[in-house]
Nucleic acid binder design. Structure first.
Length: 551
RNA sequence: UGUCCGAUAGUAUAAGGGUAGUACGACAGUUUUUGGUACUGUUUGUCUUGGUUCGAAUCCAGGUCGGACAACCA
């Protein structure tokens, strides 16, 4: 919380503005368009905007940028609100650009009256060609010289619904030869006979982004309107409207958006994955959406920590997915309840164990002050252990089971391997061991030292669960930049489903609010598809793997 | 061919005319009943060429490279 860190460039600007009195208190906004689910890139913007007012005082509005009725839905409004709250932020006012449709319309009329806007009846293609190119100036058409009265009447007709979609549009009259294409008489109102998620059919003309965003900021007295780099060239227009309309001068500042390796970060592409059923939905645990990360088991704190670590700058960047994983591990390590589960079982038989079974005690979290409390773990003559924890011919520096080798069974006894059984295909099916009764966890008097400790689940007491192991959704670091379609690079192994994993009985009481560490395997959480008969666990992230057998 | 933005270890981000630092990664070691965690150490960097200056990552000029901009999307 109180971590010392140097200021990023936006914080420096704000501190200067606060100090000089240029602004008395800070007002920011987070302005999503409700046309999709929020993703980790939005989380960066959310943490920035809300974090700034948390740090410097003032407040942040949530404003939905809902000026295009054909792509926007209430479903998205709701999910976006849920995600922001889940991340741990509170907005001061819940607002909508559509709240300002009347006011925005008035601004358009004002511009027309000032001779700074006109109704253009050209086709979309004509307007595009008349705009020229970045190196060739645009040319004016016959509509540019319509009189104020004519424009006023025509705009009123547009509003009344006298025209079909696409018949004409309202353009600002700025500069057709500007080197900034956005200043070449940008379109500010278009006709769309479409129902809006909030205003219904009240309107059939809707303002464009550039004519809505800055003015909405201004109406709300936003002092620092923070957006991503692709809006840099919009700033000139943003300032132009505010100046000509003579309204509160909000200022726009741009930072570099987040790019994450092995994922895509555009709502359009994420929607494609959803619509083409390449994932199970917006909240598929492989998705970089907030809802996907939530279902995957990421915590709000881990995502906030990640956004803090990546920093804010103007340089294009590609963050390694490993940093996000580091952040969850760091958080989960402190809080996750340790349990044992065997994902790829073979049987271990303790040949000299004469009891039926016994109850052992295990601590729930070695990182917690009180060890996270303790739980009972049933132990018996036959145990499930991980196939990968036995090697018939041990590699160099192998600390686990092998003929003649000794290991500690976590929370239990030291065992020595004496024998093993193979099936007709040559696969090991059973490992036979003898245990050392004096080596019991907690009161080991054996004096034996072993290098390896492995996890296990008692065969007689094991419950089963489905376990879903996730890997990167894409095989390319930059799926967008790679040749061809980004979907060509979907990882076919991004989800591995283990139908019958064995879990210790304690996990029968698992709930969705608790994060678990399956000892030596990773962090897991209960999936929402679980029910009383079927447990489903999602692997949030593996443990850091420090040991690899050398060839 | 135009305008705008940017360039510091593998990645990200500091240093704002005065010792190039931090985090992640990688590598090595210590501790450990998780080959986890924790701790210690090592490693690698100022795009380029000039200029200003006692002194430049920082200021200036030219170049190079990367990105953005010509939707009735946001």
């Amino acid at each position: 919380m109180s971590e010392e860190r140097s200021l990023n460039f936006i914080e420096e600007l704000i501190e200067a503005d606060l100090k000089s009195g240029k602004c008395k208190s800070l007002v920011t906004r987070f302005p999503p368009e409700p046309n999709g689910y929020l993703h980790i890139g939005h989380a960066k913007a959310i943490c920035l905007n809300f974090g700034l007012t948390k740090k410097y005082g003032g407040y942040t509005n949530l404003r939905f940028d809902d000026t295009n009725p054909v792509t926007e839905k209430t479903e998205y409004v709701n999910s976006q609100q849920e995600d922001i709250k889940w991340l741990g932020f509170e907005w001061k006012n819940e607002l909508y650009a559509s709240d300002y449709f009347d006011q925005l319309h008035g601004y358009a009329v004002k511009l027309i009256e000032k001779g700074l806007a006109y109704v253009d009846h050209s086709s979309a293609e004509d307007i595009a060609t008349q705009k020229g190119t970045p190196t060739v100036a645009g040319v004016a058409n016959e509509y540019r010289n319509r009189t104020v009265a004519e424009n006023l009447a025509l705009f009123a007709q547009m509003k009344k619904g006298d025209f079909e979609d696409g018949t004409c549009i309202l353009r600002a009259k700025i500069d057709l030869s500007s080197p900034n294409m956005l200043m070449r008489d940008p379109i500010i109102y278009r006709i769309k006979h479409a129902a809006h998620h909030r205003t219904g059919t009240t309107w059939c003309i809707y303002p464009m982004y550039d004519f809505a965003h800055g003015q909405s900021d201004s109406i709300e007295n936003i002092t620092h309107s923070i957006c991503t780099l692709e809006y840099v060239s919009h700033r000139e227009l943003y300032d132009w409207f505010i100046e000509k309309l003579e309204i509160f001068p909000s200022k726009q500042y741009e930072f570099a958006r987040l790019n994450l390796s092995y994922t895509v970060m555009s709502k359009r592409k994420l929607m494609q994955l959803v619509n083409e059923n390449l994932v199970s939905g917006w909240d598929d645990p492989r998705m970089p959406t907030i809802s996907g990360l939530r279902r995957r088991g990421y915590t709000p704190a881990s995502i906030r920590a990640f956004c803090e670590k990546i920093g804010i700058a103007k340089r294009e960047n590609l963050i390694e997915l490993g940093l996000l994983e580091f952040c969850v591990r760091e958080d989960l390590n402190k809080t996750a309840t340790r349990v044992m589960a065997v994902l790829d079982p073979i049987k271990l038989v303790i040949t000299n164990y004469s009891q039926q079974s016994e109850i052992l005690i295990g601590e729930n979290n070695p990182e917690a002050e009180d060890k996270g409390g303790h739980r009972e773990i049933p132990f018996g003559k036959e145990l499930w252990i991980e196939r990968e924890d036995f090697m018939e011919e041990p590699a160099k520096k192998w600390f686990r089971l092998a003929p003649g080798a000794t290991v500690r069974l976590k929370h239990a006894y030291i065992v020595q391997c004496n024998d093993f059984v193979k099936d007709e295909n040559g696969n090991v099916t059973e490992v036979h061991c003898t245990y050392i009764p004096e080596s019991k966890s907690g009161n080991d008097t054996s004096g034996l030292m072993v290098k390896g400790t492995i996890h296990w689940v008692s065969v007689a007491h094991a419950k089963t669960a489905e376990v879903r192991i996730y890997e990167n959704l894409f095989t390319q670091e930059l799926p967008d930049a790679a040749e061809g379609d980004f979907k060509d690079y979907l990882n076919p192994n991004s989800m591995q489903v283990i139908k019958n994993a064995y879990i210790e009985p304690y996990l029968t009481g698992a709930n969705q609010d608790t994060r678990y560490q399956f000892i030596r395997k990773g962090y897991f959480c209960l999936d929402k598809d679980s029910n009383a008969e079927k447990f489903i666990f999602n692997r949030t992230v593996s443990l850091k793997e420090a040991w690899k057998p050398k060839a």
